[in-house]
Amino acid sequence: MLYLDKVNYIYQKGTAMEMPALHDVSIEIRDGEFIGVIGHTGSGKSTLIQHLNGLVKPTSGNIYYNGRDIWDEDFSRKELRTKVGLVFQYPEYQLFETTVEKDVEFGPTNMKLPKLEVQMRAFEALKTVGIGEDLYDVSPFDLSGGQKRRVAIAGILAMRPEVIVLDEPTAGLDPCGRDEILEAIARIRKERNITVVLVSHSMEDVARYVDRLIVMDHGMVKFDGPTKEVFQNYEELEKIGLAAPQVTYLTAALMKKGVPLPGIATTVEEAKEMLKAVTGAR
């Protein structure tokens, strides 16, 4: 549904601060996928996701949405942004309305939908992210960190996008708030069956949730494949300043010591099953 063809982006082209941010990036995002994007700060992943909904124009290369070039003269990027919902980092900093409900209605209102439809979508979105009706009339500034962030995600969800892109949705939250967000994302997947792109620093979260992993480094796609396969390259990942989940290192270390495991594990559950099998499950 989204296809990036040899996208290049140069920061501040033509000035002294010129700097390549993306280099020949070609990615295909298919319907219903759950994709993780990892890369250290400055690897180009934030620039990449801003290309997906036409907020940033590539210096060269093309981006297609359902077969149409999004930078064509007659293509409405405003409409594209309702189809490809982008949740920025610390999205709670964009809340501005007097009540939670009104804030979530901002997106659908901008789509010029009838009032009833706007309200319906807002209710629906708030339900998906697990915000109860008792909070609809509360000022968004009075909520807890995790709640604020879920309201902000609902604000994007209310536009009923076909793809939702989340930039580090769990950054700065405590384990509790983090689980709330991850559960909300899992519910979005289940209830809406939409494509999700998750940018994250947490290898543990990525390993647990996403099916496909894209690794960015120096503005280039370093790896792109099924999550487990990508983590096989944990030594390479280390070299570019990233890491794999702790259990991956653990299973690798055990294998080196001669423990007969079928391969590396990426989640605790997986490692547990492997080790249980080795011990003969006594």
């Binding site: 405590d174 547990k272 249980k276 011990t279």
Partner: peptide, 20 residues
Amino acid sequence: HKLDLPQVTELADELAKEGV
């Protein structure tokens, strides 16, 4: 108390619960 465990600690604990 709504806190996390490092993965190795959690794994060891889970295994212990399964009789390992």
